[in-house]
Amino acid sequence: MMKVIIKSRTTTVVILLMLALALSLAPLFVLKGAEFGGSDEAGSQMVEQVTGGQYQPWAKPVMETIIGGKLSPEMETLFFCLQTGIGVGILAFCFGYLVARKKYAGGGAERNRINP
């Protein structure tokens, strides 16, 4: 199945990581001063453009209803970080668990799976 046997796993991982980082961070340095705005707003503006006129959203975000106003950018960062944090926490815990399990189980059955 594995026609292309990659020489070293570590090399592949490093190359792929660098590629992902480059792809996601390079624009910051290439496009100096760009706003990198967008996200949901662009799609919503498009709705207005297509319908020709001001579209009135018929519901407001839950959080805005509760606090009675727009969520400030700082608070939005807080919640985004919370989301990342929860995810990274679980991922890190599980990876740690699995790595330790492999280490202390003596390897045995867990080994020899990759590129048999």
Binding site: G38, S39, D40, E41, G43, W58, K60
Partner: peptide
């Protein structure tokens, strides 16, 4: 431009 999900209230009921 970029976007992700459809925003709250931006789709008819």
């Amino acid at each position: 431009a970029g976007a992700m999900h459809i925003m709250e209230g931006y789709l008819p009921p």
